[in-house]
Design a protein around this nucleic acid. Structure first.
Length: 689
RNA sequence: GGCGGUUUAGCUCAGCGGUAGAGCACUGGAAUCAUAAUCCAUUGGUCCGGGGUUCAAAUCCCUGAACCGCUACCA
C-alpha cells in the first residue's frame, strides 16, 4: 500500500489564527483526502509550538503559569480545525512529555557524537531587545541603538550545532534531488543561499533568560532554542506517538512538509542538516506556498471600504465554499489575492451555477419522473460514451497530477466533468423526453448517466468540499465508501433519492466586473544627458542620528526635507563623521531615488558627499548655502528640471559629479541652490556620490 | 551589486519550436428540467519592446523595460 504523510508547520500558540494558518492546514487536509480516495494510507500532522519567550511573558502578564497559558491558548487552533472539518490524525504540542523526551534524546545523541559544542560569547546585551550588540553598534551614549536603553556587558556561553560541516553534504543531496523543494524556483533559491559559507547554529538560551523551554540534557542551566524544539515535532509525532500505519509500515519520513515561503530556509537548510547529523532519513518533499494578499496587499486602504477579513467568509458562506475558494484560486507556490468579488464570482459560477445546479436538475428530474428512484440505463449511445470517457479521463488525470500537488488545475479538471453533464442534459433534453411515455427508456438512460457522472464529480470533489459532497451524495441515494468507488458504474439503478435542497445557494450580491488596469507606461531608458534634469535634489536638515543596529559603518538618519514628514536615510558616514557633527547639519538629499533596504532598514534617498580618501572610505558632505532652507531644490545651472520620476542607482551612475574649485559640477554644469553654488571641501577632480 | 523568476484576451492563468488556448467577464441567440441557473455562437491578442538563430519562434539566444523573490555594510 502506498503511504502519504503530510505536515503543516506547528503554529506559534500565542498567534491568533489567520488566513495563512488556515490555508496551509486546508491544503494539507485536501492533499490528504485526495490521497485517501486514491487508496493511500495517510497520516496528517499539525500542532502548536508552545515554548519561548513570548509565551513566558504572556503568561506572566496574565498571572498564570506558562503551561496554564498554553493549555488554554492551543485550543484556538484545535477548535478552528475542528470547525473547518480538518481531519488531522494527530495534534502535537511541543509541551507534551513524549515530545520533550524525544528532543532531549536527540540532543544527547548529538552531544555524544560531538556535533554540538559550547562557545563563550561576549558583548553588550540589551535586555529590552533580547540580543547582543557590538561595541561599534551602540549609540552615542553607549546605549542600545534601537530602544536607547542602557546595555550591560555580558559574557555568555551558548551551545552550537555544527551545521556548517553539513554544507557540502546538503549541496550534494540537493543536486541529486532536484524535485525536493516544490516549486522548483525555491530549490534554486536555496541552492543559491548555499553558495555562501553556512554558519553553525546557536541552539540554546541560558535558563536565566529563557526558562520556558526544553532543558538541554547535558547542561540543565540551558534550554534549547526553537530549532530542535520545534522542527523535531515532525519526527517525534511519527515515532514517539504514532509509529506505523495500520499495515505496520513506519510513518516517517514525511512525504510533504507544507510550509509558507517565509520559513523555507529553516525547513530546507537547518532541518535537513539536523536530520543528517541524527542519521534520520530526510523528508521526501518540502512544499512552499505563497501568501494570500488581502485587501490588495496593502494598497487598498480601510477608507476605500473594501477591507476583507477572510476568516469571516467561512462563517458567512460556509466552510466548504471557503475551502473551495482557497484551493481553486491559489496556484500553489504563487501569491494570490483574496477579494470579495473574486470569491463571489468563483463560488457562484463553479459551485452554485455548475455543480449545485446540475445536481439539483438531476435530482428533481428523477423525483418527478421516477418517483425518486434512480432508473437503470437501457442503452449506451455516443453521447453517453462521451460523458463516460471524459469521466475516466478526469480520474486518470487526477491520479497523475496528484504528486505535483497542482490543486487548482486538478479542480479545474473536475469542473470540466461537471460542465459536461450540463451540456449532456441540454443535448438530450430529458424534460422533453418525459412528455412522451414511449421514450421512457431513453429518459431512464439520460438520468442514470447524469446521476452517475454527478456522483463521480462529487466523489472527486470530496477532498475539497467534504461536507457538501457527502450531502450531495445523500441526495442521490449513495455514499462514498472506498477508493473503488472512483470508477464508472457504481450506481446500479434502484437507489432511492433523498431529500434535496440547493447545495450551494447562489450568493446574491452585486459584483464589479474585473477592471482593466492601465498598462504601465513603458519607461524609456534614461540617457546620461537626461539624468541631470531628472534628479530631484533638495536641501535637508539632519534631525536625528542613530547607529544602524546591524551595520558597523551605517548611520540611520532622520532628515527634514521640507515635506512635513521626516525621511529615513541610511548612510555610510561613520568613518567620516561623529554623530554630533551631523546633528542639525544641512545636507543635500537625492530625494527621488528608489528606496531600498540597507541591512533591514529602508533608506529613502541618499546624501551627497565628495570622496576624501578612497582607501579609508571617508568623505566630506557637500555644503549648501547658509540661507538655504529644507526643501529648497538644487539645480544644475541652465538645466530646467523635468517631471519628477523615481530614479535608480543605475541611472545616477550614468553621470559623474565631481568637484572643481571647491564647487560641485556635473561635467560643465554647476550645481546651485537659489543661484548660489553647492560646495564641497575635497580636492579638485574628486567624485561626488 | 550578485543570482533567479515573471510579463500571453477586460480579469485569473495554461501553453514553452510547428495554424494563439481555458475558466470567468462581454455581446447575440436557443431552451424552460433547474438555484434568473444552463446550452450554442460570436467578440476580443504587435504572446512587454528591440535585435538574432531557424523552413518555422509566445516558445531558443542576445539586449532594453516593468514588476517580483532570494542575497549583499552600494546610501
Amino acid at each position: 500500500m502506498k503511504n502519504f504523510y503530510v505536515t503543516t508547520p506547528i503554529y506559534y500558540v500565542n498567534d491568533a489564527p489567520h488566513i495563512g494558518h488556515s490555508y496551509t492546514t486546508v491544503l494539507a487536509d485536501i492533499l490528504t483526502r485526495f490521497h485517501k480516495i486514491l487508496g493511500y494510507q495517510t497520516f496528517f500532522l499539525t500542532g502548536t509550538d508552545e515554548h519561548g519567550q513570548k509565551v513566558q511573558r504572556a503568561a506572566e502578564k496574565r498571572g498564570v503559569t506558562p503551561q496554564e497559558h498554553v493549555d488554554e491558548y492551543y485550543h484556538r487552533f484545535e477548535d478552528l480545525w475542528k470547525k473547518m472539518g480538518i481531519g488531522n490524525d494527530f495534534f502535537i504540542r511541543t509541551t507534551m512529555p513524549e515530545h520533550k523526551a524525544f528532543v532531549q534524546e536527540c540532543l544527547q545523541k548529538l552531544w555524544d557524537k560531538g556535533e554540538i559544542y559550547s562557545k563563550e560569547y561576549e558583548g553588550w546585551y540589551s535586555v529590552g531587545e533580547e540580543r547582543f550588540f557590538g561595541e561599534d553598534e551602540l549609540d552615542e551614549n553607549k546605549c542600545d541603538p534601537i530602544s536607547h536603553r542602557p546595555v550591560e556587558w555580558l559574557k555568555e556561553k551558548n551551545y552550537f550545532f555544527k551545521m556548517g560541516s553539513y554544507q557540502q553534504k546538503l549541496i550534494d543531496f540537493l543536486e541529486s534531488h532536484k524535485d525536493w523543494i516544490v516549486p522548483d524556483y525555491r530549490w534554486n533559491e536555496i541552492r543559491g543561499f548555499l553558495r555562501q559559507p553556512l554558519n553553525d547554529l546557536c541552539i540554546s538560551r541560558p535558563k536565566a533568560r529563557l526558562s520556558w523551554g526544553i532543558p538541554l540534557p547535558f547542561d540543565t542551566d540551558y534550554v534549547t532554542y526553537v530549532w530542535f524544539d520545534a522542527l523535531l515535532n515532525y519526527v517525534s509525532a511519527s515515532t514517539a506517538f504514532h509509529k506505523t500505519y495500520a499495515d505496520g509500515t513506519p510513518i516517517w519520513p514525511a512525504t510533504y512538509h507544507l510550509i509558507g515561503k517565509d520559513i523555507l530556509t529553516t525547513h530546507s537548510v537547518y532541518w535537513p542538516t539536523m536530520l543528517m547529523a541524527l542519521d534520520i532519513p530526510l523528508p521526501q518533499h518540502i512544499l512552499a506556498h505563497g501568501w494570500w494578499l488581502v485587501n490588495g496587499g496593502e494598497k487598498m486602504s480601510k477608507s476605500a471600504g473594501n477591507v476583507v477579513n477572510p476568516m469571516d467568509y467561512m462563517e458567512k458562506y460556509g466552510i466548504d465554499a471557503f475551502r473551495y475558494f482557497l484551493a481553486r484560486e491559489m496556484v500553489v507556490g504563487q501569491d494570490a489575492n483574496f477579494t470579495h468579488d473574486a470569491f463571489v464570482r468563483r463560488i457562484n459560477s463553479d459551485l452554485a451555477n455548475d455543480l449545485g445546479n446540475v445536481l439539483n436538475r438531476v435530482h428533481r428530474l428523477v423525483l418527478n419522473n421516477f418517483e425518486g428512484k434512480l432508473p437503470a440505463a437501457t442503452s449506451i449511445g455516443d453521447a453517453e460514451k462521451e460523458v463516460i470517457d471524459l469521466a475516466n479521463k478526469v480520474i486518470a488525470e487526477i491520479k497523475e497530477g496528484l504528486p505535483q500537488a497542482r490543486l487548482s488545475q486538478s479542480i479545474e479538471t473536475i469542473m470540466q466533468l461537471v460542465r459536461s453533464i450540463n451540456r449532456y442534459l441540454e443535448v438530450k433534453a430529458p424534460w422533453k423526453l418525459a412528455k412522451d411515455p414511449s421514450l421512457k427508456d431513453e429518459l431512464a438512460t439520460v438520468l442514470y448517466v447524469s446521476a452517475e457522472a454527478v456522483r463521480l464529480s462529487l466523489c472527486l470533489l470530496w477532498p475539497v468540499i467534504p461536507g457538501k459532497a457527502e450531502e450531495g451524495l445523500a441526495m442521490i441515494g449513495c455514499k462514498f465508501q472506498s477508493a473503488d468507488d472512483l470508477a464508472w458504474g457504481i450506481l446500479k439503478g434502484g437507489e432511492a433519492f433523498g431529500e434535496g435542497k440547493p447545495l450551494f445557494p447562489r450568493i446574491e450580491e452585486e459584483v464589479k466586473k474585473p477592471e482593466a488596469q492601465p498598462k504601465p507606461k513603458q519607461n524609456k531608458p534614461l540617457m546620461a544627458a537626461d539624468v541631470p534634469a531628472a534628479m530631484d535634489m533638495r536641501v535637508a536638515q539632519i534631525k536625528e542620528v542613530a547607529d544602524h543596529p546591524d551595520a558597523t559603518s551605517l548611520y540611520v538618519l532622520k532628515v527634514d526635507a521640507g515635506e512635513g514628514e521626516l525621511r529615513t536615510i541610511c548612510s555610510g558616514l561613520k568613518n567620516s563623521y561623529k554623530a554630533e557633527e551631523l546633528q542639525n547639519r544641512k545636507i543635500l538629499l537625492f530625494a527621488n531615488l528608489k528606496p531600498s533596504a540597507l541591512r533591514g532598514i529602508m533608506s529613502q534617498g541618499m546624501l551627497f558627499a565628495g570622496d576624501l580618501d578612497n582607501e579609508a572610505h571617508t568623505c566630506r558632505l557637500v555644503s549648501v548655502p547658509e540661507d538655504a532652507k529644507p526643501g529648497d531644490r538644487a539645480l544644475f545651472k541652465g538645466v530646467a528640471p523635468n517631471e519628477p520620476r523615481e530614479l535608480k542607482v543605475k541611472d545616477f551612475e550614468k553621470i559623474a559629479l565631481s568637484v572643481k574649485g571647491g564647487a560641485v559640477f556635473c561635467d560643465t554644469l554647476a550645481l546651485e541652490v537659489n543661484g548660489k553654488p553647492v560646495t564641497c571641501d575635497v580636492a579638485d577632480g574628486n567624485g561626488v556620490h
